[in-house]
């Protein structure tokens, strides 16, 4: 257990330590109210990070998730307010838009053969540009109350997001760890030619992985718009940094082939604990940005050293 899940064990230990330190720092930290609220706040990043785990395990990367989220957020507002579509219909269209964004990334990477990094860097600019162009930097407000219920309401005393996150977490964990499809994703990330020669559906799987990433970003957009009750074109800016940090922190190899959903979940919790704890301790948001950067780099350095030792 320790040998196979060494990284996750260490990470779980770190989470516990961080929780203890933060709860001594501030009395408000370890309260049920605060914990539930943190769960609400981290939902958008978490949804995208679960999908990103598949992308990175498959040996790819998706830098466009923040822009996809921005575009979907803007379209929610524009389709509803400017085009006059019923909000219920809009909520059905937005996930399709997210899927299309993801499939287009897949097209560029699989069909055209672009490196994932550069393809999604391009669509990062393109999707954000579309969001800015379509919205002309105008924000949309005045959403109906039932819609705000998704992002601000509760079911059986728990915030809606916790339920959604719980389902997504279990689903992603089972798919990546226990199904044939999940193993295919890992095989592709470990060695794409080998997966190809083993007769695995490499291209179809990669398309699906990027499509799911886009879909997750669109769902995050709906949650976010509903939670803050406004739409702006800069929504989701820098999301990719938070997401990639959580995934890499969770022990997923940036070279692909190896990673777990539990790891990503722990990575997400650690980042959120640090963010929340620091803000309760009076550190401003930009200070936590530094911390996230440092944590990301240190994790990678530690991972690189461990890998070198294993190889030797």
């Amino acid at each position: 257990m320790l040998k196979r899940h060494g990284h996750e064990t260490v990470l779980a230990g770190l989470v516990v330590i961080a929780l203890l330190v933060m709860s001594f720092q501030s009395a408000q930290f370890l309260t049920t109210g605060n914990m539930l609220n943190q769960g609400r706040l981290m939902a958008e990043v978490a949804l995208v990070a679960l999908a990103m785990t598949f992308v990175i395990v498959s040996g790819g990367i998706d830098l466009s998730v923040g822009s996809t989220m921005g575009l979907c957020a803007i379209l929610t507002g524009v389709l509803w307010q400017n085009m006059g579509l019923p909000l219920g219909v809009v909520l059905a269209i937005i996930p399709i838009i997210g899927l299309i964004c993801g499939l287009f990334n897949g097209f560029l990477i699989i069909r055209v053969g672009m490196p994932p990094l550069i393809a999604t860097l391009g669509t990062l600019a393109l999707y954000r540009g579309l969001a800015e162009g379509i919205s002309q930097a105008r924000s949309v407000r005045g959403y109906p109350e039932w819609f705000a219920g998704i992002g601000q309401g509760s079911i059986l005393g728990l915030p809606t997001q916790i339920w959604i996150l719980g389902v997504a977490l279990v689903l992603a964990g089972v798919i990546l760890g226990l199904t044939r499809w999940g193993r295919t994703v890992q095989a592709i990330g470990y060695s794409e030619p080998a997966a190809h020669f083993a007769g695995l559906p490499v291209n179809a799987t990669k398309y699906a992985v990027y499509a799911v990433s886009g879909l997750a970003a669109s769902l995050a957009a709906i949650l976010f718009v509903s939670r803050v009750s406004t739409t702006r074109s800069d929504m989701g800016t820098g999301l990719e940094l938070d997401v990639i940090t959580a995934v890499v922190l969770g022990g997923t190899s940036i070279f692909g082939g190896r990673g777990t959903i539990i790891g990503t979940a722990l990575g997400l919790v650690l980042v959120q604990v640090l963010k929340n704890g620091l803000s309760l301790a009076g550190v401003r948001g930009d200070g936590t940005l530094v911390l996230i950067g440092v944590v990301l780099v240190l994790t990678l350095v530690a991972g690189a050293f461990m890998e070198n030792r294993v190889r030797r």
Partner: peptide, 8 residues
């Protein structure tokens, strides 16, 4: 505001 879409 369309500039970034052109860039992409």
């Amino acid at each position: 505001y369309w500039l970034r879409a052109f860039i992409g």
